[in-house]
Amino acid sequence: MENMTYAEALRASMREALAEDENVFLIGEDIGKYGGCYGVTAGLVEEFGEDRVIDTPISELAITGASVGAAMQGKRPVVEIMYADFLTVAADQIINQACKMRYIMGKEVKVPLVVRTAYGGGGRYSFNHSQSPEAMFMNAPGLTILMPSTPADAKGLMTAAIRSNNPVLFFEQKYLYKTVSGPVPEGDYEIPIGKGDVKREGQDITVVATGWMVHRALEAAKRLEQEGISLEVIDPRTLKPLDEELILSSVRKTGRLITMHEASLTGGFGAEICAIVTEKAFDSLKKPVCRLAAPDSIIPFAPNLEDQYYPTAVELEAAAREMLQ
């Protein structure tokens, strides 16, 4: 084990992939000498050259489209879309093209494409540099969606994403890049796609949280423990395909469910979790499900407003207490 930040863990995975497979290349805006907007790819162009770490014009459609076309030729492109807010510019390529090529062309065609992107708040950047658009892509058949919360998961999932033969959308929480560090297995480390993780075991309430919110859920769980309330914190890590069984078995044990994410409430990932649980574990529920999420409004700039915007550990604690009344 080596102690790494979230960003370093991602870099370690990409570095190993570049060394291991000559078909892997990185492509995006300012990812070469500049090292990417958040420095995630720093040093890689020096090590692997400009043909493997490709700087591009500011053209998200061209970058993503070229990666779809190259993946169909057996390359394994790893695209960086600087901010997840910019994904909508490339959304046609992700939703309508990357995910449909195998269907059109048949089994001989694979699209081993990774689109990685910095999402989420905490950076004081306001909207269009802070959004969490994962739910917009949940409804696209054929797309794998990953969202790690820890450095170890970031490395293991990035390795799995690059080795996957299907299009993967990889959400990296930008606040976590440098603020979170932890032990990361050295060398080859892959976490299977579709496998969630129990970040903390508990008895009373199942909390399904993603990304940054996993850390807030763990913070709340620690404090609630002192009140005798026990939260089980689950990080699905793979939003799609989802580890349903892990969540369902937890809810069957606790009988209660709270979901927590930093994206807006309506049509969010939490809604999907609640739907699955009410559909498949309704009889286990002792209380109605509860969704904690950002409001259906625009991410503000002022620090006090932004802090109000995302769900907090304190809000989760209150929701948990109420649920146990």
Binding site: G65, A66, V68, G69, D92, Q93
Partner: peptide, 16 residues
């Protein structure tokens, strides 16, 4: 227009 950006990818692979 979507096919133009994808076609570039095949060309990129050939060049590589």
């Amino acid at each position: 227009g979507a096919s133009s950006v994808i076609a570039n990818g095949a060309a990129l692979a050939f060049k590589m």
